[in-house]
Design a protein around this nucleic acid. Structure first.
Ligand code: MN
Ligand code: MN
Ligand code: ZN
Ligand code: ZN
Lengths: 145, 145
DNA sequence: TCCATATTGATATTGAATTTCATTTTCATG
DNA sequence: CATGAAAATGAAATTCAATATCAATATGGA
């Protein structure tokens, strides 16, 4: 099976916290990793359910929480309130371009923007910890329709 | 009473849409405007309730929706999912610095950041429509504690 | 193997937001 | 002014994602 590294990482986190390994947790992790980023909890639930029909909704949420806690995944709250989960393990910080028509999400980083944010914060006396930048518009494909 | 201009503006919007003027709507608008920005629906509800004890929760939500539709107020969805409403009438676009400790929100704009966002979007072929930038950190006061 | 403890999944519960609906209010018309 | 059609209101019911509860099950150290 794939994603041995992430699975080992998750397992050590689990051991460290005196939690227990479980088939469900590993299945959820694998399916989360196998699929492209930015799934909702419900989308993930349906995918896991296909291979593992007995899985409960709560287990999805509980496992996602663990995955967020250990840094494998991270929650992204969009403009409309929906929460999507994205890969964080060995992924650097990035912002998002989101198509208003088809929902496509492009991951981007602009070091200059990041730097200017720091400058802006400093001007107001803030010490920045993190930020969220969501840019909404039309992707190339959706512009021609 | 204050905010005559905004009230007139709201009233014309209401007439235009063949809706009806009501005491509640005007009270809600006035209290929304009177208070500093970034209230939650519930905070606004409580404030309106003080002067107008019979008001219902739904009327708050319904009026906030109208105020958003006509451009007097706008919804700001924060990182933790809470929705706050802010003044939009004669207020320009701005982003937010938010203190993680005390919740203080500072409104900021950096034209360079805005420009770089456009550049970044163009690089990916996107046509930008809007964006949300939330910067979280510690405000000056909260740094010394 | 034993067994304390964590995990699971069905179900119930939460809380913000919305919908429903009987009653009240608005306002164009006469 | 009245009148009445249509909109607005507030209480209550409903929605929906997320969380909590809890009896049954699985895990893993001794
Ligand atoms: Mn992403
Ligand atoms: Mn603001
Ligand atoms: Zn698109
Ligand atoms: Zn502060």
């Amino acid at each position: 099976m794939a994603f041995e590294e992430e699975k080992k990482f998750f397992e050590s986190y689990i051991r460290e916290k005196n939690l227990k390994w479980s088939e469900q947790r590993m299945q959820i992790l694998e399916i989360f990793l196998r699929n492209k980023k930015h799934l909702t909890a419900d989308e993930l639930y349906r995918m896991v359910k296909e291979k593992f029909p007995s899985v409960g909704y709560s287990t999805i949420y509980r496992t996602l929480k663990l995955l967020c806690d250990c840094g494998i995944c991270s929650e992204l709250r969009l403009d409309d309130g929906t929460i999507r989960f994205e890969h964080l393990y060995r992924h650097k910080h990035h912002d998002h371009l989101i198509c208003l028509k088809c929902g496509r999400m492009v991951e981007v980083v602009d070091p200059e923007i990041e730097k200017l944010q720091e400058r802006l914060a400093k001007k107001e006396g803030f010490i920045l910890e993190r930020h969220i930048l969501l840019m909404y518009g039309l992707c190339p494909k959706c512009q021609s329709k």
